[in-house]
Structure formats: structure tokens, C-alpha cells
Design a protein around this nucleic acid. Structure first.
Lengths: 245, 245
DNA sequence: ATTCGCCCTTGATCGCCATCAAAGGCGGTG
DNA sequence: CACCGCCTTTGATGGCGATCAAGGGCGAAT
């Protein structure tokens, strides 16, 4: 069952042009007139309560979504019941791009906290991006960035050890949070050890143990999901050994 | 040094519309008039001898490439000298999509046999896809498909054992070859055990040993890079246990 | 034909992480 | 408040794949 609610954007028709995420989201780099056209496109928001799915593997694809608030994971369910998490998404990031290829979603997107997304009908996005070069270019960059991100994860899964993986994960997470104005040394994790492990190709016990080792080494202060980074540099050094050049 | 040669397409200006790859490549689903416009865009071919790079990490991005003949690998070089292979590309597949995000290539593409690519200036591709819905849609599908493929690799790296990984690799490879009219039971590998291992997150010895085990089990006939698949079904079953649903 | 270099195979050993197991923390609910 | 379920931590053990090491195959060059 799906208790998420759909609400049309009421008086505030200035969806994107007044959104404080416009420097992170689809509208990056758009001129004011372009932006206003984009407003017409993003005509709907949806609330997704924590734990609910925004869309599921196999569902028909027709929209992409921009995270307006909250936090999501995307993942595949395996036949044997296990789950492979393919990503975590925060404000300003797009969800659903994988659906374009076959007009069906290939992953399931689940809210890890109460969240809100902007609904972007994909055919309208394509239509508008035929009109506006900048929007077209920006959309292509976003898709390409997703490909690059995935390559980074492949690198991580293919050649890093547990400590390097977790360090890379934390550095990436805090960098993205910092871009959004949050502290880069203090994180409240929205996901379980198991979800982190699935994303990093590790078992939850290994994730937990690695957190503990980082704490013993004075890198982190870990209290359940409250993470405080004490030595950012050493954490980055851990990753650095295996970075692309 | 780069000994690859650039040649304009001479009399045969009918590049895409006469290409026998048009059902696999960018032109999929295009109407005849659209196709002819695409011909004007793909104005150049490049030969890449075996072992040479089509482009390298860090180089400025301006074109995408369609593999016309031959076989490529893409990968990142790590600071410590190791390599992470991110994919293998065969005829009809596009190379360089990762470059869109930052206008610089993030991977290096290397020919694993003497190859030929069609050069597609990206700004012209964008321009044309603003005119033609079908081309725009097809291009978006191709990018999205790359994202989906990457998720599949993440699944493989994140939760499969060595045997499952190699089986998945072989099944995927032969399926793609079959689409192109080649035998699905006989493959000549174009890459080394080390490159396979890098792609699959394994060491070359493990790849070799796993090949040997498959041979002992009667699944394959392995003679260096000559692989004959004896029991396709059992090979698929090996993967099946860990497939998405 | 011989040599060289690269790739592949196979064996022996080691170490990291998975697995199995148990107990503790924390929030939600009756 | 006490109970319950879920998440997390920590310990003990084991297995898979990495690592170290040696030898064999094959094509290219001389």
C-alpha cells in the first residue's frame, strides 16, 4: 500500500525559480525565462513517508523525480530475497533515470526519512529540453554524472578493502552534505548498517566492526547513527591510495 | 603517441543510413529522413590500432564515438598504477558518454583489437536531437541503458562469488555477440585474464582457476582465449541465483 | 629455428571478510 | 513501566579469494 499523497503546487507557481535547491538540481545554469518555463513543468509534489517506496522495480516509467527534502535509497531486490543498494539520494538529486531505457523502472526507490519530491513528467522534460539548449545540456550532464558516479562505485567495489570503502562512503556523504550547507564533520546516518553494507559490498557486521576500528583509531566518534568525523584528513588519506588519476 | 588515423567519409556519405549496424546503434528506430540528417553528423571515422587509446582520462570531451568494428575496453588508472576496467564495448555501442558531465573524459578507452569508430560531435548531436524527437529519445535511452548496465555490474561486484561473476560475464558477452549475429556458444576473448579480473573485481589467478573449474565441470571448453560453451543452461543457472527480480 | 616477452596455469599459503552466535541499546507500544 | 522488535556491537571460527611462487604455452622478432 502507498500512503503517499500527491499535491498540486498551489499558489506558489514559482516552483523551480523560487526553490532554494535550484543551484543543485535540474535548473542549474538556466536563465530566468527558461526557469519560468520549467516551473510549468514541475506541477506536482509528492510526500513519501519514511519507509515507503516512491517507485518500484518493474513499474511503468513516465516521470523522473527531484528530491526536494528527505533522503532515499535505490536498490534491486534479488530473487533470493536479498537486496543490492545501488545508491543514496539527497536533496536536489534526480531519481528514476534508469527507467528511461525500457520505460520501466529497474530499481526501487525507498524513502529513508519523510521526504518530498518534485514530479517531472519525462515527455514534457524532453519537450522542453528540445526548446532550451541549457536545459538539454544540464539534463545530459546529470545523466552523465550518474554514469561517472556508478564508475566510482565500481572502482570501490572492485578494488578497495573494507576500510577504504567505508572511508570513501563517509567522505562522499559528507561532501554532498557540505554542498548543501550542512556540517561536513557531523552526520546522522539515515540508513542501517545493512544498507551501507549492501551498497559497499560488505556484510553489516563488517561495517559495524570497521566503524568501531575507526573509532579506536581516533578517526571517528560513533554513537549508533550519529557520526562525528574527528580527523577528516586521515579519512581522506585512506581513500586516496585508491583514487583515480 | 597516437598512430590512429582520421578519415573523412568519402563518397559514401550515406554513413548511418547504409550502415549495417543501424539497428544496434544510435539510429535505432529513426525514420528515413531523420536517418539522412544523422548521416551529415557522422562525418568522420577513425581507425584505432590494437592497443591504442581512443581517448584518455582527463582529455577534453567534444565527441562521442560509435564502435563500427572492433572491440574496446574502458577503465580508470589508479594512482598506485593499477587499473579498474569499467566496461567492454563492441560494435554499435557508444563510447565517451561519461565525458558529458564535466566536458572531460573520465575513463580511458583502449582498442583491444584493430578497430574503427564513427566520430559524433556532441554539440551537433544535441542540436539534431532538439529537432528530432526520435533521436532525442533514442539517445536518452542509450544513456539510461548505460546506467542500468552499471547497476548490474554493481550487483555483480557487490554480491556475487567468483564463479557467479565469471558466469555472468560470459553469459552477457555471448548474448551481446549473438545479437550481432555471432555464435553464442563460441567466443574468442579479446581481453586478458587480468582485464577480465579487473572488470569482475577478481585477480587474474582467480579468473584462470575459475575457467579451469568450469572446464573440469564440463561447462566450458577453454583453450587460452578460445572459449566454447558446452552447457549454456547450467552457466545461466549459476548466475540466475543472484539475478534481480 | 631459436629466443624473448607476455600471458596463462597450477600449487601452497595467508589474510580478510563472511558466517555463526550471543548480548546490549534504543525506540515504540500496550 | 515493561515488553517487544529491530538495529547494532562484539567474539569465535572458517572459507574464499589474494598473494607468492614456479613452470608452461604461444606468438613475434631476429
Amino acid at each position: 500500500m502507498n500512503t503517499s499523497s500527491v499535491l498540486p503546487i498551489r499558489d506558489l507557481r514559482a516552483a523551480c525559480s523560487a526553490c532554494n535547491l535550484r543551484e543543485l538540481c535540474l535548473p542549474v545554469g538556466l536563465s530566468t525565462p527558461d526557469l519560468e518555463r520549467l516551473d510549468g513543468l514541475v506541477a506536482q509534489r509528492r510526500h513519501i513517508p519514511r519507509g515507503e517506496d516512491l517507485f518500484r522495480t518493474g513499474e511503468r516509467f513516465a516521470q523522473v523525480y527531484a528530491v526536494r527534502s528527505g533522503f532515499f535509497k535505490t536498490g534491486l531486490m534479488l530473487e533470493d530475497g536479498r537486496e543490492q543498494v545501488t545508491g543514496f539520494q539527497m536533496t536536489g538529486e534526480l531519481l528514476g533515470l534508469d527507467g528511461i531505457s525500457t520505460d520501466a523502472h529497474t530499481v526501487t526507490a525507498t524513502a529513508l526519512e519523510d521526504s518530498q519530491v518534485c514530479v517531472i513528467p519525462f515527455d514534457q522534460l524532453e519537450e522542453l529540453s528540445r526548446e532550451f539548449n541549457d536545459l538539454q545540456r544540464q539534463f545530459h550532464k546529470i545523466m552523465s554524472r550518474e554514469i561517472v558516479r556508478d564508475h566510482g562505485v565500481m572502482l570501490l567495489l572492485g578494488s578497495m578493502k573494507a576500510e577504504e570503502r567505508l572511508a570513501a562512503f563517509l567522505v562522499n556523504l559528507t561532501q554532498r552534505l557540505a554542498t548543501r550547507g550542512y556540517s561536513s564533520s557531523e552526520v546522522v546516518l539515515r540508513m542501517t548498517r545493512e544498507e551501507i553494507g549492501s551498497y559497499l559490498g560488505l556484510k553489516l557486521e563488517t561495517v559495524s566492526r570497521t566503524f568501531s576500528r575507526f573509532q579506536e583509531d581516533g578517526l571517528l566518534d560513533v554513537k549508533q547513527r550519529q557520526i562525528r568525523i574527528l580527523q577528516q584528513e586521515r579519512l581522506k588519506d585512506l581513500v586516496g591510495a585508491t583514487t583515480a588519476c
